[in-house]
């Protein structure tokens, strides 16, 4: 059983690192979490991004956030990637597995995963 006391250790361990993290965030991964997104399976997609970004050691650089409905409900779960100095990239019909691949190839490797992009996906 976890006890709240363990949080004190997390605080000690994290307080210096977090200060660095909040100052950065050159890349933003935004997951649509309105009714349309949630119904289509956005919750596991979001949590996969959070998990994989942390596992890849990218938390200093990549911020995973949530947004509401962006108006393309038929393409949900929709994930947008904003990177400084680059054009926005929109992934559609995402799954947790695809999220893992995007972290690996796009966020770590620097190449967008073409087959999941909005222009290349049929409904």
């Amino acid at each position: 059983m976890k006890t709240l006391a363990e949080l004190a250790a997390i605080r000690e361990q994290m307080k210096d690192k977090v200060a660095i993290r909040t100052g950065s965030g050159a890349v933003r991964v935004v997951v649509g979490m309105a009714t349309c997104g949630i119904t289509a399976g956005a919750r596991p997609v979001l949590n996969a991004f959070v998990e994989e970004v942390a596992k890849a050691g990218l938390t200093d650089k990549v911020m995973v956030t949530q947004t509401g409905c962006i108006g393309i409900c038929q393409y949900e779960p929709v994930v947008e990637v904003y990177e400084d100095g680059k054009e926005k990239v929109t992934y559609v019909k995402m799954t947790a597995e695809k999220a893992k691949e995007v972290v690996e190839k796009h966020l770590c490797g620097g190449e967008a995963v073409g087959e999941y992009l909005i222009g290349n996906t049929e409904l």
């Binding site: 997390i10 994290m14 998990e51």
Partner: peptide, 9 residues
């Protein structure tokens, strides 16, 4: 200093 959405938290 440590937000609730820190991965470890």
């Amino acid at each position: 200093d440590v937000p609730l959405n820190t991965y470890e938290v």
